[in-house]
């Protein structure tokens, strides 16, 4: 049985169910209690699970991320929110040097089963410091499992897995998708981390896209007379390269669309994996499409200018034929 719920409801349900399932799970972050999160992602949780399990923190990402690390090592399973993904940088040392490295430098003896989640992405006019997609930053630091969500189905199933996973997981919902609706099973389910999903099958070109870009890629290909295979990587790190490579071996063409900045973005990394390992399956050079190499501006026409549009994606796909 399925029903339609919004993406943000799916996020809240994931946390709710994991709090109910496992006493070791706790949620903390700024304004996660009555306020319920900027997008409603923690609404109702504190009333249901109480203040010991759902905690407002003082305003410091360093405190939130650092405390999550210690709590995880200490034997509980923290789920910690940063209000915007950009704030991974305000907890820079915790996010880049501490969390992903402490298990490694301990020789695997220390376990940090924590999840940090943070709404990412542009499109709501939030400006240069509240709009970034940061999975390229995080993907560059081995130790993080970096997970995104494209649909309500993904959001719930992947978030639940993220919470259960024994690695540090950075889970990145997209704020533009908050109110989008989709089918989600009534019954309990999880989705595997580290595995890409072939969302649409096709023979002519492989398009890799996630989050908002997935929906734009779909829009872009609706009117094209090209048989497109769309792959949603779901987990950016470690990346399921094999599912993408298998698809390119069939289609011979690759377009990677992503909301990270084009310069040193994830697009380039994914394309490179195929160029280095499956070069001879390519019939055309891979095409990468991302945010232009500028900070994200506020004014809607400017913001839309730098984000990949459906038209830009369509043109990118067509350029390969």
């Amino acid at each position: 049985m399925t029903r339609e719920i919004t993406y943000v409801q799916a996020v809240a349900e994931a946390i709710d169910e994991e709090l109910a399932r496992d006493d070791d799970v706790i949620l903390f972050g700024e304004d996660v209690e009555e306020f319920g999160g900027n997008f409603g992602e923690t609404e109702g949780l504190y009333q249901k699970h109480g203040r010991d399990r759902v905690r407002n923190t003082p305003l410091s990402e360093i405190g939130i991320a650092g405390m999550a690390l210690g709590a995880a090592v200490g034997g509980i399973r923290p789920v910690a929110e940063l209000q915007f993904a950009d704030f991974a940088a305000t907890a820079g040392d915790e996010v880049f040097n501490q969390i992903p490295k402490q298990p490694y430098v301990s020789g695997g003896k220390l376990k940090a089963p924590l999840t940090i989640f943070a709404p990412s992405g542009a499109g709501i006019g939030a400006g240069a410091q509240h709009s970034q997609s940061v999975h390229s930053w995080l993907g560059n630091v081995p130790g993080w499992v970096v997970v995104t969500a494209t649909t309500p189905y993904d959001a719930k199933g992947l978030f639940k897995s993220a919470i259960r996973d024994d690695n540090p997981v950075f889970f990145l919902p997209h704020k533009m998708l908050s109110e989008t609706k989709g089918e989600v099973p009534e019954e309990e389910y999880t989705l595997a981390l580290g595995e890409a999903a072939v969302e649409e099958e096709g023979d002519d070109v492989t398009v890799v896209a996630t989050q908002l870009m997935f929906h734009r890629a779909r829009e872009a290909t609706a009117d094209l007379d090209i048989d497109v295979e769309i792959i949603n990587p779901r987990t950016f790190a470690p990346l399921d390269t094999e599912t993408i490579a298998e698809s390119v071996r069939k289609t011979g063409r690759l377009v990677v669309v992503d909301e990270t900045v084009e310069r040193y973005g994830t697009q380039g990394h994914i394309a490179n994996e195929i160029v280095e390992n499956d070069f001879f399956s390519l019939d055309a050079p891979p095409k990468t499409i991302g945010v232009k190499n500028v900070p994200i501006p506020l004014s809607p026409p400017l913001e839309q200018e730098v984000l990949p549009s459906a038209d830009r994606i369509a043109a990118g796909i067509e350029s390969l034929f």
Binding site: G63, G66, M67, L69, G70, A71, G74, D93, S106, K109
Partner: peptide, 27 residues
């Protein structure tokens, strides 16, 4: 580090070990 002896280890970026300590206390 020696988790069995409850030695968390060290943040070699000086001054980053205290928030994890707060988290350990919370746990």
């Amino acid at each position: 580090s020696d988790i069995g002896r409850k030695l968390y280890g060290h943040a070699a970026t000086i001054g980053s070990g205290q928030n994890p300590a707060v988290g350990l206390a919370l746990a």
